[in-house]
Every structure is written in C-alpha cells, then in structure tokens.
C-alpha cells in the first residue's frame, strides 16, 4: 500500500542507479563529509564566521559549511563512485569518507 519514498526524496528517480537495498548484517555504516572545494567562495561559511564575533566568540576563522551524509551500505567499495556520481559534485566539492563501522546486527531491516 505504501507507494513510496520518504520525505527525503527517496532513493532518487532512477531506481537502478546503483546498488540498492538496506545494509545486511554484513553491511557497514559510513559517513561522507562533503565540503566546498578549497578556493571556492563559501558565503554560508562567511556568514557563520561573521556572526560569531557578535556572540562573543573571537578568533574563529576558516569556517566552511558543508554537509554530512550518513548511510548504511553492503559494499563500501562502491562508496567513492557514489560520492563522485551523486553525493558530491567534484567540480565544486571535495568529499571525505569517514572510517566505517560495522552495522550492529540488531539493526532492523
């Protein structure tokens, strides 16, 4: 009866864009950090940096605002490809895959 994807926009429109399905018992949890490439103007980071002194926090510089993506994946070997193709735009963003931990076996499917 459920017709669909969740509020996040779901798995994307293509269906078959890549390996799908939840992480099985052998899967791992991973974090991908995406941030603006060095040298690219980051107005969000600048806005944060400008706001901090007003709150009494001085001496903060080099603020960059990016995003954190958490996921569970059966085959972590394809993560770089997922990053290159979807999670980050290599023209403007760098990504970093954080050391992955095995998913707890009690995790519901």
């Amino acid at each position: 009866m459920s017709a669909s994807a969740g509020p996040s926009g779901g798995a994307g429109p293509s269906g078959g864009a890549g390996p799908s399905g939840g992480a099985g018992p052998s899967g791992v949890r991973a974090r991908v950090l995406v941030r603006p490439k060095e040298g690219i103007l980051d107005p969000q980071g600048q806005a944060v940096e400008r706001a901090l002194p007003a709150l009494g926090f001085t001496g903060v510089s080099g603020v960059r605002v990016g995003r954190l993506i958490e996921l569970e994946i059966a085959d972590p070997a394809v993560l770089p490809e997922i990053c290159e193709r979807l999670l980050a735009n290599p023209l403007i963003e760098d990504y970093e895959i954080e050391p992955a931990n095995p998913v707890a076996p009690t995790q519901p499917a």
Binding site: M1, S2, A3, S4, A5, G10
Partner: peptide, 14 residues
C-alpha cells in the same frame, strides 16, 4: 487512487 499516488510518489494508506 493508489496507482495515481504511486505515480506521484505520494504515500497512500487505507
């Protein structure tokens, strides 16, 4: 109704 909701990617539950 359910088919059209699926097409719009809208969850529908009786």
């Amino acid at each position: 109704v359910l088919a059209r909701c699926a097409r719009w990617d809208v969850r529908a539950s009786a």
